[in-house]
Computed example of a mutant assay.
Amino acid sequence: MRLNQFVCRTIAELDAQLIECRACPRLVEWREQVAHDKRAAFRDENYWGRPVPGLGPDDARLLLVGLAPAAHGGNRTGRMFTGDRSGDVLFAAMHAVGLSNQATSVAQGDGLRLIGTRVTAPVHCAPPDNKPTPTERDTCRGWLEKELGLLAPTVRAIVVLGAWGWQALLPALAESGWAIPKPKPRFGHGAHILLAPAGSDRAPLHLFGSYHVSQQNTFTGRLTPAMLESVLSDAATAAGLHPRR
């Protein structure tokens, strides 16, 4: 069944259907292989090994868009940015500006609650070497388009983590009811563009860019906690969430 044939009336229905997806053979094989072989440090854990749904309320005003689940992070825990170093950085920053009730995200059931914010990704399965193919990105886009449509009544700002996510998101936004300027907006840390609605049932949408919370960026200082918190705070303000500063 093609992704655009799925009928999802709510975020809960979307998530329930998403976790059953087997549309990309390479990603299915990889995520299941990782879940079977495991990393030594997690050998006693039961890996999720399935597509990882978005995290956060279905009436979110702010949406964070990453890249894809990590093999031993989200693919292990079943929750976006949970159980890896990238998540440690992201949720510490979110908590610092008032977008989550705690600064850590270790496993499902750890008490984490996001405040007015949802986290998702253009690709929902862990890819080999953290690199989805263009075909895998385009195949998974249907889920992102449906998520954007369901969030449209409330979402007012999006933060994209990284250039790859930025390029993957723009076509989904265009298909979901927002006008993308020409030439297309360029990614950059701190980039901020206000997208006009393409139809009467959409509100203007603030689009922000941030370097990804990858270890390559955070370990080298290319992305610092202060830099990330600044973007999140600006986006939360644009979304009407009154962040801590």
Rank of each mutant, 00 (worst) to 15 (best):
A35T: 06
G66I: 01
P127G: 05
G66R: 00
W166Q: 09
A163Q: 11
A12T: 15
L150W: 06
H206L: 08
R137Q: 07
S214D: 07
G221D: 02
V231Q: 04
E145Q: 13
E229D: 10
G49M: 06
A107L: 06
V159K: 03
L195N: 09
I11T: 14
G54H: 08
L64A: 02
N217M: 11
F6K: 11
D58I: 02
A103E: 13
R245H: 14
R113K: 12
F81T: 05
T120V: 08
F6L: 11
Q5C: 09
Q17Y: 02
A174M: 00
Q17D: 10
C8S: 15
P225G: 07
R31D: 15
P243M: 12
E32A: 12
P51F: 01
W164L: 03
A172W: 09
P153N: 14
F91N: 04
S214I: 05
A174W: 00
R39W: 10
G165R: 07
S230W: 06
A60E: 08
A236F: 08
C8D: 15
D234W: 01
G165T: 08
S176V: 07
P53W: 00
A191P: 12
V106S: 09
A35D: 03
V89W: 00
R22E: 15
W30V: 10
D110F: 01
A35V: 05
K38F: 12
I19V: 15
A163M: 03
L14Y: 06
N217C: 10
L170C: 00
A163W: 01
G162P: 04
D44T: 12
G240P: 08
M1W: 12
V106W: 02
E13F: 14
H95W: 14
L3C: 12
L3V: 14
T154C: 03
R118Q: 14
T117H: 06
G162A: 11
L151F: 07
M1F: 13
I193H: 09
H95R: 14
T133A: 00
L223W: 03
